[in-house]
């Protein structure tokens, strides 16, 4: 029982991170029908930006308030990562819009390889550890084994919840959200009613990157280490989350993320930690084969 509750807590934490990344996949797929393969690497870049911002604040400026430092780091990471994704969309995807269907995917794969190697070349291939932040824990359940929630986990839950709320407001209540939904339905029609399609797509990439940056900062804080190759596997898992929740569906991405996080931690705890990635990839394959519309997505009707 204790193990289960502890894994539940860990799983929700991990799932929050996956969910934040998954939104980027699901939004881009919804609006331009493309699997943004480089999104996982954008997440990794954001973790590096957060790392560098944190080092500037703590070692150079000697900031002592961890909470304030984290807040600044979060904002810096969000801004820079948004810029990165905005530029990527402009140079690598926009020229390919309306091109043949594999071109954007190949371009995204190239961008993914480029980003991870760019970070490897500029920052070196080694793992980058930071001193552990906020080591305190709260014991929530006593037993043969104490179940704990760390401050880090609480921060991750809180930040995720707040940002999801802001994001939810943005896409459901504002003109931007309406423009996005219009572009999802029919880009030509959206343009005819006066929506700037290019700008809406750009903003979609920017929002996706900002949420990935939140995930990147949380990832760095949670694990205390990041390396250039950390984009691929979390990226695939977040994509799995998006697919499981129903690609194109925003609540689906969050729910999918939580599920994948839970499955991963439970699998590691009860079965085999070696095969936890196999489990994630199997879920991806099984979902796409048997439930391609996901949990909350709408089925695609084939035009005959």
């Amino acid at each position: 029982m204790e193990v289960f509750v502890q894994q539940l807590i860990n799983g929700i934490t991990l799932g929050s991170i996956y969910g934040l990344i998954a939104i980027g996949y699901t939004m881009v797929f919804g609006i331009i029908g493309m699997v943004n393969f480089a999104h996982g690497d954008v997440f990794m870049v954001s973790a590096f930006v957060a790392l560098i911002a944190l080092l500037i604040l703590t070692t150079w400026l000697g900031m002592s308030s961890v909470a304030l430092a984290l807040l600044i780091v979060l904002v810096v990471a969000m801004v820079f990562t948004s810029l990165v994704n905005w530029v990527i969309e402009r140079i690598a995807y926009r020229p390919l819009r309306g091109s043949f269907r594999l071109a954007p995917l190949i371009s995204a794969i190239g961008m993914s390889i480029f980003l991870s190697n760019f970070v490897q070349v500029t920052q070196g291939p080694r793992n980058k550890p930071i001193p552990p932040l906020l080591r305190d824990v709260i014991v929530v359940m006593h037993g043969d084994y104490d179940v704990t929630v760390s401050y880090r986990q609480l921060i991750i839950w809180g930040v995720t919840a707040v940002l999801l709320a802001i994001f939810w407001y943005l896409v459901s209540k504002t003109a931007l959200g309406r423009a996005q939904r219009a572009c999802e339905q029919d880009q030509k029609m959206a343009a005819l009613v006066g929506i700037d399609v290019d700008r809406t797509i750009s903003i979609t990439f920017v929002i996706g990157a900002a949420l990935a940056a939140v995930a990147g900062t949380m990832y760095l804080m949670y694990y205390g280490v990041v390396s250039f190759s950390d984009g691929f596997v979390p990226g695939i898992k977040a994509f799995t989350a998006a697919v499981l929740g129903g690609i194109g569906s925003l609540p689906g991405a969050v729910i999918g993320g939580l599920l994948i996080g839970l499955i991963e931690t439970m699998w590691s705890a009860y079965f085999s930690i070696d095969y936890k990635d196999v489990a994630a990839f199997s879920i991806l394959a099984i979902t796409l084969i048997f439930l391609p519309q996901g949990l909350l997505g709408r089925p695609e009707v084939e035009k005959v």
Partner: peptide
């Protein structure tokens, strides 16, 4: 690095 860039 160049390989990825060349793909794009």
């Amino acid at each position: 690095l160049l390989f990825g860039f060349a793909m794009v």
